[in-house]
Design a protein around this nucleic acid. Structure first.
Lengths: 233, 233
DNA sequence: AATCCAAACCAATACTGAATTGGTTGGAGA
DNA sequence: TCTCCAACCAATTCAGTATTGGTTTGGATT
């Protein structure tokens, strides 16, 4: 073997792969055969094939994933909608900060676009939180209230973002359940704060809605931190 | 079986169920035993139990799903975990509106938390957009600039949200690529607008950063709409 | 000494078939 | 008519197995 063939061994495999990709009939999803098969088909060692695949991947021609396979084209756009992966890299404080940044703006938008039906549903959720006999029920209606506000913004991507944040919150807080089985006290801070938010939205007061939501979340944040610093409450 | 028990059979089962729900120790997810077991445990026929469960479901106390089971609380929101599903329900205008709501707040947060390294990277991206020889290169560095701003906010969930929005934008705009192969003109609006954003962040001017980002996105939105109303540009 | 290769191993994913579960139907019986 | 029971249905879950890209190891080649 000459100097050239030696020096170009990897490049050779790359061009061979390129030719294969141009010629081969790939299935609908663009998946190409597993490395073990492909290396045999091309008459190359798996090591060498993997190096070539590596350069092609660096070029963005293909993408790979353990257990899934190797595919032509660019990686599909599911990106990091994967909550569990995100949840592992973050913590409740960060999620809370993100909520503080996002949700007031959602409330602001909702103040502009909410329909009477939305507002009526918000009031219903409010009433239900007050009637709640357990914390579970309370949180249930609290969630629903916040989501109704997000729905009132009438923006699909925004609603998706809200859901993502919400799911993230649950994933991160998972395992730290409210221990007390009693129901929320009638003077629970959220009641008046929720009132302020919904009232502002009903009055089409965008700044007020944003401010009320921010104030509410800040209270929630304070409670969260307190509970962390003094566990067992 | 007496007349009373017969006449009140269903109502009786409902109250019996209510008592069960109040007393029973339910697992974390609020799932209650399968109908077949529960009917035996309560000493009721499955038919009757199902009627009672039906009324409780109508009241919103529980929710059921084939194969999953029966759960207390209200039906969880079907979150669009999948971006492609979300992309099908929305449109460029909505995505643009969502960006207008979210990204200024990200810029505001970035103004507070950006490190000198972040700012330096922003300036680099800026320079690269000016040097770009093609629209593709320009958009590449433009994307990177916006993402650096999101990184500078130093909040994992926020960055995830930004990526989601970005992926959504690409998914929705997919197919309508910029046809002109020429490079951006030196007086392209984005240049000065990007300057304003980065300057504000560097000056720790939170309101300024948010305003500049909003102004920038509004210009982008206007261009987008213009292009829609006059296709082919 | 440096590479390369084949095999084994690893962890993530896909796949497959059985079991579970809410929903439905049909017949027996009161 | 109504209830009950059993069987059945379709959606979902679950557990075990097979694939698959990624990594390590030991030996062979140069």
């Amino acid at each position: 073997m000459t100097l050239i063939s030696e020096a170009g061994s990897e490049r050779g495999t790359v061009t061979q792969l390129r030719a294969y990709l141009a010629q081969a009939e790939l299935p609908e999803d663009g998946r190409l055969p597993p490395e073990r098969d492909l290396s045999e088909a091309l008459g190359v060692s798996r090591t060498e094939l993997r190096k070539a695949l590596g350069t092609l991947e660096a070029e963005g021609q293909i993408w790979r994933h353990v257990g899934k396979g190797t595919f032509v084209g660019s990686r599909p756009i599911d990106t990091f909608a994967d909550l569990t992966a995100l949840a592992k890299r973050t913590n409740p404080a960060e999620v809370m900060r993100a909520r503080l940044i996002i949700e007031p703006e959602i409330a602001r938008a909702a103040a502009l676009t909410a329909t009477p039906m939305h507002i009526a549903e918000m009031r219903t959720c409010q009433a239900r939180t007050r009637e709640a006999a357990t914390w579970r029920q309370y949180e249930n209606w609290d969630n629903r209230l916040h989501r109704t506000i997000a729905e009132a913004a009438q923006n699909t991507p925004l609603l998706g973002i809200f859901d993502t944040l919400n799911a993230l919150r649950r994933a991160v807080t998972w395992g730290r359940l409210r221990s007390t089985p009693v129901k929320p006290r009638p003077d629970h801070h959220s009641f008046t704060e929720h009132d302020a938010i919904v009232d502002a939205i009903a009055n089409r007061d965008m700044n007020g809605a944003a401010a009320a939501m921010r104030a509410h979340l800040q209270t929630v944040e304070r409670n969260l931190l307190d509970r962390q610093s003094a566990p067992g409450e």
